[in-house]
């Protein structure tokens, strides 16, 4: 691991430019809140420990990204929804914290389109006008919580209550955060900042062969591809993690988490027994910071999580 840190491609300038906010609008993830409600809770817990207050709004709707990927909605609808969704934190005077790579990527991209193309902006403005909301001005900032956690890595380290000594953890970074190459803090093809976080929590980072392979979520569980296309891909990924001795995997995207966790049942049923619990990075941090385990929602996981974490609970 020493070697990976030394050769890190993390952009120190971008990390330095990240804020340490007191208050952020928490953009809720549909997949996150439905599939793994513990993730949202974990984000709040970590935020609280770091002095970040998250506020939400019942008015917020889906980021529309998944629907857009699958060509299930008219892009105009996505523009109008984004304009409306982002007018909510704008009215509150807050920047946005996101805990799903998908929401992050789509919000940024759609906000950019709204901000830079007058015709698109008009679509959003009309929607907000009809709903009695402010026009979206495009100046607010959108952050993924994983980068905000990394920004305060030293503080996180000092807050660890359950050092995860000896736990072999591997990262699945997902595509839609790192693909934002103009803003992401690490290299899309060889990221290492999650491994640094594991180390800070006392765990042992493990690099496995297929660490940069996609989770297959939007093609496998969506409308676009059939099981036989995506299952061999995920099987390959999870078996390579198992071969590297991975005991736990983390994600920063509920979509990835769903694919990698839920599909293990199918992978096993097709003859490749695999059992590697997959949880969100925020859940892992919250756990290491001593959060009550019943608040982290591990019961929602298909692949049991507690067997690998039990020994750290006093």
């Amino acid at each position: 691991m020493e070697e990976y840190q030394r050769l890190s491609l993390i952009d120190p300038q971008r990390v330095a430019n990240l804020p340490t906010p007191d208050k952020l609008f928490l953009f809720l993830s549909c997949t996150g809140s439905i599939e793994y409600p513990g993730t949202e809770r974990a984000v709040r817990i970590v935020g609280e420990k770091l002095g970040i207050e998250f506020v939400e709004s019942v008015d917020q709707t889906c980021c529309t990204g998944y629907m857009l990927t699958c060509n299930a909605v008219n892009p105009q609808l996505a523009l109008a929804s984004t304009s409306r969704n982002l007018s909510i934190p704008q009215e509150m005077g807050l920047d946005v914290g996101v805990f799903c790579n998908g929401c992050y990527g789509y919000l940024r991209e759609l906000a950019h389109l709204l901000h830079s193309n007058p015709a698109f902006k008009e679509v959003g403005d009309k929607a907000n006008e009809a709903l009695g909301r402010e026009k979206f001005r495009g100046h607010l900032k959108i952050y993924h919580v994983q980068e905000l956690w990394y920004k305060q890595l030293e503080k996180l380290t000092s807050l660890v209550k359950r050092p995860l000594t000896g736990l072999k953890i591997a990262a699945h970074y997902g595509c839609h955060y790192l693909a934002n190459k103009d803003v992401a803090i690490d290299d899309a093809q060889y990221p290492t900042f999650h491994e640094e976080i594991y180390k800070a929590l006392g765990a042992t980072p493990v690099v496995y062969k297929e660490r940069r392979a996609c989770c297959g979520y939007s093609v496998g569980r969506g409308f676009t591809h059939r099981e036989e296309t995506v299952l061999p891909h995920i099987t390959n990924k999870m078996l390579s993690a198992a071969a590297a001795g991975v005991q736990l995997m983390t994600t920063t995207c509920p979509g990835c988490n769903t694919a990698l966790d839920r599909e293990q049942k199918t992978i096993t049923a097709r003859g490749n027994a695999v059992s590697i619990p997959v949880i969100d990075l925020s859940q892992l941090i919250a756990f290491a910071l001593g959060a009550p385990v019943e608040q982290l929602g591990f019961k929602a996981n298909t692949t049991p999580v507690l067997p690998v974490l039990e020994r750290f609970i006093k």
Binding site: E3, L7, L9, D187, A188, Q189, Y190
Partner: peptide
């Protein structure tokens, strides 16, 4: 060459 993380130059 390190700018192409996928090729692992320097690693």
């Amino acid at each position: 060459g390190k700018k192409y993380g996928e090729y692992g130059y320097g690693r």
